[in-house]
Each structure stands twice: as structure tokens, then as C-alpha cells.
């Protein structure tokens, strides 16, 4: 059983996803979990405090995903990180407006997004280095790896919103396939065999 504070944060995330952060009112949040606005004000003194809590949870989750870098030396490690990213970006769909907003109720959020997204790209880039060194990926010039890393990052971050915009289904399998397709053309023979034994069985 969640406590009220958690319920408020979870309801806020849902409403932020549906209506955007700016348009959600405290009354809506209170109605969503069936408590009074007075009770809501007991836990959070204003909307800013709720937004603060939501972002704290969001960045903590993001940090957790970034912490899951190369725990095991195989494709499976990236595959599980992709799954975490899928859950994360699906859960916090309001991130897309954040990325392009010129103003934000919390100015440090913008900076944090930038920092985390940079870390994400660096991780993907270094992961390519790792698999190249391991002989899973064909040797390429550094610049090519940079471009592949960026393409993977773009897929992870923008695949869900583009599917929603086109009212297409958002499934983890398709998400993963879209991400892996950036790497597949560069796999060596060893990489292909690893991929077909480790990753393809999970797709089905």
C-alpha cells in the first residue's frame, strides 16, 4: 500500500503526462486520488512542492538507469538498459515538453536534463567502444561511432513521442528493435552470433 505522499506524486505524474505540467490544478490531483485539497495541502504546501517531488523521483530513476552501465560484459547488459529507458520515458511522458520548453517552473530542471542526457550519450558512445574492443562491432572511424551513438540516443529519447504522434502502438519490443537496428549493420560475425543467441530470443 502506497502512502499518501507517493500516491500524490504518482497521480501528478499521470496528470502531467495527460495535460502538461502547467495546466494541472491541485483540485485535479486531489480528485485523482480521492482526497480533499486540504489534505493535499497538508502533504505539499503548493504545486511547486509537488513538481519538486516529481522531478526528484524522475531524476533518481534516471540516475538508477545510468548506474546500470556495463554490469555484465555482453549485449544483454545494453538490452536491459534499453528496457529501463523504455519504462522511464513511457512513465514520464511530459519530459518531451520539458526538453523544448523555453521556460520552466524550476530553472535547474533544464540544466539537469542536459546533464543527464549528455551522460546518456557518453555511455552509449563508450558502450560502442567496449563492444568494438571486444570484437562484436566492426572497426569504424571514431566519427562514425559518434554518429551511431547519437542515432541510438535519438531513437531512445524520441521513439515513443513519434509513435504517439502518429497514433501507432508503443510496445517495448518495437522500441528495442528500433534501438538495436542502429547497431545491427555494424555487427561482426561474432556480434551477429551473440545477438542471435542472446537478444533475438527475448524479442519474441
Amino acid at each position: 500500500m502506497y502512502n499518501t505522499k507517493e500516491r500524490i506524486v504518482n497521480a501528478s505524474i499521470k496528470l502531467f503526462n495527460d495535460y502538461g505540467i502547467a495546466s494541472v490544478r491541485l483540485q485535479q490531483i486531489a480528485d485523482e486520488i480521492g482526497i480533499s485539497v486540504g489534505n493535499l495541502a497538508y502533504h505539499y504546501k503548493n504545486k511547486e512542492a509537488i513538481i519538486n517531488s516529481v522531478y526528484e523521483k524522475l531524476f533518481e530513476d534516471f540516475q538508477q538507469i545510468l548506474g546500470a552501465y556495463l554490469k555484465t560484459p555482453s549485449f544483454l547488459d545494453f538490452d536491459s538498459q534499453i528496457s529501463y529507458y523504455f519504462d522511464f520515458f513511457k512513465n514520464y511522458q511530459f519530459y518531451i515538453t520539458d526538453l523544448f520548453a523555453t521556460e520552466h517552473p524550476l530553472p535547474e530542471v533544464r540544466q539537469k536534463w542536459q546533464e543527464f542526457m549528455n551522460k546518456m550519450i557518453f555511455q552509449i558512445r563508450k558502450r560502442l567502444d567496449f563492444h568494438a574492443k571486444r570484437g562484436d562491432i566492426l572497426p569504424q572511424p571514431e566519427a562514425t561511432y559518434d554518429i551511431i551513438a547519437e542515432a541510438i540516443w535519438i531513437t531512445i529519447v524520441f521513439w515513443i513521442p513519434q509513435q504517439q504522434m502518429r497514433t501507432k502502438p508503443v510496445t517495448e519490443t518495437r522500441f528495442k528493435a528500433a534501438v538495436w537496428n542502429n547497431i545491427r549493420p555494424y555487427l561482426t560475425e561474432k556480434g551477429v552470433s551473440d545477438f542471435s543467441t542472446l537478444i533475438i530470443p527475448i524479442f519474441v
Binding site: 531524476f59 552501465y69 556495463l70 560484459p73 535547474e108 551522460k119 557518453f122 563508450k126 567502444d129
Partner: peptide, 25 residues
């Protein structure tokens, strides 16, 4: 929001390289 520890980009990259190397060394 509580400000958290920040790591320099260069050092973060170096850290990732060390993590990569861990499996070879």
C-alpha cells in the same frame, strides 16, 4: 530540488573507459 554532485564531462568519460577496461584487464 536538492542540488546533487556533478561530475566533469571529461572525468565521466574517463570513468566509463575505466569501466570498459575492467573487463579486459
Amino acid at each position: 530540488m536538492a542540488s546533487s554532485f556533478k561530475i566533469n564531462e571529461k572525468i565521466y568519460n574517463k570513468l566509463l573507459e575505466l569501466l570498459n577496461d575492467a573487463y579486459f584487464i
